[in-house]
Computed example of a mutant assay.
Amino acid sequence: MVKCCSAIGCASRCLPNSKLKGLTFHVFPTDENIKRKWVLAMKRLDVNTAGIWEPKKGDVLCSRHFKKTDFDRSTPNTKLKPGAIPSVFESPCHLQEKREKLHCRKNFILKTLPVSNRGHQLVGASCIAEFQPQLIFEHSYSVMDSPKKLKHKLDLVIIELENTKESLQNVLDREKHFQKSLRKTIRELKDESLISQETASRLDAFCWECCQESTA
């Protein structure tokens, strides 16, 4: 499974040629204090719990979110210096809008903060007031509904589409019938000399134009 950077808006993926491009990926620290600082620096919320996002085993951040001075390049394998904290994050326009909407929601309440594997909260209560206005409300890319529910929704959409097609065809059939009736009436009026040939031709042409527009 290809690992992806956990930072909001970052599309970096750990591929075989990543290192050749100077891109490295780093797991979250095991030290709870350092891990907390990483999480706060990311300003990411979990959309499912409305709490601060907590990294899972295997989650990584790419080197784009660290300064050059954060790395130890004295060894063949590029490593982060002890205590290095990510600090390079960009906020795309659409994420900025989501953050502003979140900040304006009067009824939004930050739920109980996630607990780490060691039983300690990643973020203390004193940090909430400081960082809550800056947190980015993450878009969830996971499918929340079960396959059965999704299939049911798809079936409803298909049924609605078929009904729409049927309604449209009925409208076209009625219009076609109306066009035939109108042309028949024009011919009858011309045959009874109630309208001139010129008028009949213009009315017939008008019917033809309307018919073409409706089927275009």
Results as ranks from 00 to 15, higher is better:
residue 155 D to H: 06
residue 133 P to I: 12
residue 153 K to G: 00
residue 139 H to V: 13
residue 83 G to A: 06
residue 121 Q to D: 11
residue 88 V to Y: 01
residue 68 K to A: 12
residue 124 G to P: 09
residue 127 C to D: 14
residue 111 K to M: 05
residue 148 K to I: 12
residue 81 K to W: 03
residue 82 P to W: 02
residue 138 E to R: 14
residue 69 T to A: 12
residue 110 L to R: 08
residue 120 H to P: 01
residue 156 L to D: 09
residue 73 R to K: 15
residue 86 P to L: 00
residue 139 H to S: 13
residue 61 L to Y: 07
residue 78 T to Y: 04
residue 110 L to M: 15
residue 119 G to K: 15
residue 169 Q to P: 02
residue 166 E to I: 10
residue 62 C to N: 05
residue 75 T to Q: 14
residue 137 F to W: 02
residue 83 G to H: 07
residue 137 F to K: 05
residue 82 P to Q: 07
residue 126 S to H: 11
residue 137 F to P: 01
residue 80 L to M: 09
residue 140 S to K: 10
residue 92 P to C: 06
residue 121 Q to N: 12
residue 84 A to T: 04
residue 67 K to D: 10
residue 83 G to Y: 07
residue 64 R to A: 00
residue 146 S to D: 03
residue 129 A to V: 10
residue 72 D to K: 05
residue 61 L to A: 04
residue 107 N to V: 00
residue 136 I to R: 13
residue 79 K to Q: 15
residue 122 L to H: 13
residue 154 L to M: 11
residue 114 P to I: 01
residue 107 N to P: 02
residue 90 E to R: 09
residue 149 K to R: 10
residue 160 E to T: 01
residue 164 T to I: 03
residue 152 H to I: 08
residue 82 P to L: 04
residue 88 V to P: 01
residue 103 H to V: 08
residue 146 S to L: 03
residue 80 L to E: 10
residue 92 P to M: 08
residue 84 A to W: 04
residue 103 H to C: 08
residue 141 Y to H: 13
residue 131 F to D: 12
residue 167 S to P: 00
residue 151 K to Q: 12
residue 162 E to C: 05
residue 94 H to D: 14
residue 70 D to N: 08
residue 100 E to N: 11
residue 83 G to S: 04
residue 146 S to V: 01
residue 70 D to A: 14
residue 156 L to V: 08
residue 136 I to F: 06
residue 121 Q to A: 07
residue 98 K to Q: 11
residue 161 L to T: 06
residue 128 I to M: 09
residue 113 L to F: 03
residue 165 K to E: 12
residue 169 Q to A: 10
residue 137 F to G: 02
residue 113 L to E: 15
residue 125 A to Q: 13
residue 152 H to K: 14
residue 88 V to S: 02
residue 142 S to H: 01
residue 124 G to D: 15
residue 139 H to Y: 09
residue 158 I to D: 14
